[in-house]
Design a protein around this nucleic acid. Sequence first.
RNA 1: GGGUCAGUAGCUUAGUUGGUAGAGCGGUGGACUCUUAAUCCACAGGUCGCGGGUUCGAAUCCCGCCUGACCCA
Length: 488
Amino acid sequence: MSYDEETSRVQKLKRLKEMNLDPYFQFFKPNSSASDIKDRFSTLSPGDHISSVDIRLAGRVVLIRDFGGSIFFHIQDQTGKIQCFIERKLSEEKIKFFRDFIDTGDILGVRGDVFRTKKGEITIYVRDFVILSKCLRSLPEKWHGLKDVELRYRKRYVDLFMNQEVREIFHKKSKIISHIRDFLSKKGFLEVETPILQYVPSGAFARPFKTYHNELEMSLFLRIAPELYLKKLVVGGFEKVFEIGRNFRNEGLSAYHNPEFTMLELYQAYSNYEDLMMMTETLMYELAQLVNGEPYIKDPETQEKISVDIPFRRVSICEEVAKLLEVDKEDLKDIEILKRKLGGKIDFTGKDWGAVVLEVFEKYIASGLRSPTFVVDFPVSTSPLAKRKSSDPDYVERFELYILGIEVANAFSELNDPEDQRKRFEELMRKREMREIFEDVDWDFIAALEYGMPPTAGEGIGIDRLTMILLGLNSIKEVILFPTLKPE
RNA sequence: GGGUCAGUAGCUUAGUUGGUAGAGCGGUGGACUCUUAAUCCACAGGUCGCGGGUUCGAAUCCCGCCUGACCCA
């Protein structure tokens, strides 16, 4: 900001205070909004003036056009912008006061009535106004707005009041979350909250954030997933539970990764992953309909429209990988064959065949799955909390949903055999890397399973990614109000 | 972690053989009573991301760093 503009605005504030009109001590109760007024007076003809109403509207001044004897200005509130008009004919004093003290960016309360201009715009005829907050900084350009991506994220509040389409993104994100809540409550799900501070991180493979509790003199971890706690609730008798909350993963940032992100996790007893696939399809279809008005989403890379019509395609991860490597599906279990086929393309250290198959899938196949696709049949070693397939115990009943090449959901029939679960935990703890990251596992979860968990299916859906995909945006930062950035 | 690109006034930006940094919006002062990115006149506003180097001279060339975007791992 130029020094001149700053001092000019600060001077105005100082003079207001001297006149006993300190904006920070003014109060004003609006009785209307920009969109209300436009709706209510939509039938006015150009030139018509309704003076029998007492409109009170408050918001930010976003544009001023000064004609000397009259001034047009625009006020923006939560519902949009509306034009206001003040003229000398009404009061020489008021128009002078406006000219002397009002800048774009100020928060104003206006009182008056309504007319439609000769050119046809519904306008508030301002009879009085009060300054409710002074804007001491100069605003971005009125035409181009705030475009600089970094500035938009760092000064999100400016981004929000300058860019309507950004406000819309967050309105839609809120609608998406509300719809999910509705959708699940109607099905009898109970919304719950489980610990974010956990003794041991669990429920996913990810590096955790570690913190410390002073009184208890112990380390705690910010959760990487709520999974085990939610399943303990199923043991407790809540047959359908879900949680929408923040997870924290201490890993790299990318267009699809923010260190903290919002996750929906749901668990449904007496169900399996097939049931969840059907439920997920329906939910996705409804959400696209809700935010886009049609069962389509837009691919931000190609601008192509992509249908979310039911049913979604299903592919088997092992069949896809076997096809890619030109081997028989059974050969995938032979790490020597994998090594021969993949020579050099993948680092095999510390990996079993399952981990390799998963990596091949993620590296070479996943990004090509643009239309909604359920990927099924994960190797058991990659899914330590999932139930084995009865037809082939080397695989589990699990799916991931890919849309636009991005993983949106991950679900499985939950492993409820405490003995198998214990073995898989022990297997994990044998891996040095796992011990280093997780330190231990939640053995109480085994105890819970020993009390008996009904057959249950569970799913996690990344709400930020989901929003990004539904709205055709190319970065998760666009759907997180304050994305993680390094300080300037 | 590696690579590519970007950072110039409050904002949006121009700036190539290296030669005093230019505009629009916004601001200040003035004119103007129906504008729609209002218009017209005048003026002010710059550590060219930061730090080094090369050079008579650097926004521009070189090195390092910071921040961001994209790609790769």
